[in-house]
Amino acid sequence: MSIDIGTPSLRTGTELVPAADGPQTGKEFTSDQEVRWCPGCGDYAVLKAVQSFLPDLGLRRENIVFVSGIGCSSRFPYYLDTYGMHSIHGRAPSIATGIATARADLNVWVVTGDGDALSIGGNHLIHALRRNVNMTILLFNNRIYGLTKGQYSPTSEVGKVTKTSPMGSLDHPFNPISLALGAEATFVARTIDSDRKHLTAVLSAAAAHRGTSLVEIYQNCPIFNDGAFDAIKGPEADTHLLRLEPGTEVTAGGRTWAHDPTAADPADQFAVSRLGDTAGPLGLGGPIPIGIFRQVERPTYDDLARAQVDQSKAAVEGTPTERLTRLINAGDTWNVGG
């Protein structure tokens, strides 16, 4: 049996999160902790972009929570002066689900990497996406395991030579965008660590989206996978990039269409995600699409869960004490003695 759970009015973006009293600065969002990534790491650029961009959200700093798993990128929360939790490997989406479901007034972010999100935490990622819990997931994809010093990751290309694959990696990689679309995510985008303007624009749209937003960020690891994205960063970058905007003309499989991230049917968006052969070395298989692949509205799990609680509360009478008394006196009861 299934019943209609109702269609509560769709909420937008961050409307339930209290607004800041006045303008805020990036400095206010910067903690006093020393940033400890390798010199030249792409994570610095993303951190700087996020610290600069967060004030523009106009939300109270104390109502923002960053949750991460394990990996280089997962040190991210320590560097932001918000609430934060550096959790355990792969589990950040589940912890963020608990936070977002418990509190409507929080703006929840997950910072994760290709190993954290797609390998050890793959299960939690797809289930967060299908549930559409209100959180923004930043997936730093450097196509390598950095913190453990250079093993192939679930996004490394086949044949990748690493310490654990001296004869070349045998694993066929995930395309995180295709994976997220397959999990019926409501917001899916890709951007690049070195393109501050694009990164900020995509993050703004992701933060404004109500539901799970997945943003794949191509991020260079200068120590263990240097230059993995050079083809789409250098002077000829634009010949290797397809910058997606609503209406961008896309040709694939002998068909040309105008990209529509808001289309309910993800088939065309999935076709876009297949462009550019992200399974191989980037840049060799045609232009790599960046930008927003999908952006659709669907009620979020946490809004629906809170609505059921509210609905249940509205349907009962009496004080909590009276109701608890009624509950524990229900069923077979009898008086003993006098």
């Binding site: 929570v65 949750v67 609430y83 939790m85 959790s87 589990r91 589940s94 912890i95 963020a96 689900t97 608990g98 936070i99 977002a100 479901t101 418990a102 509190r103 929080l106 299960n123 939690h124 289930h127 869960a305």
Partner: peptide, 20 residues
């Protein structure tokens, strides 16, 4: 929350605890 697995169940509970 009927979680996707045992780990997600405790993860969500820890998240809720952090949230109060």
């Amino acid at each position: 929350l009927q979680a996707e697995d045992e780990i997600a169940g405790v993860g969500a509970a820890i998240g809720a605890a952090f949230a109060g």
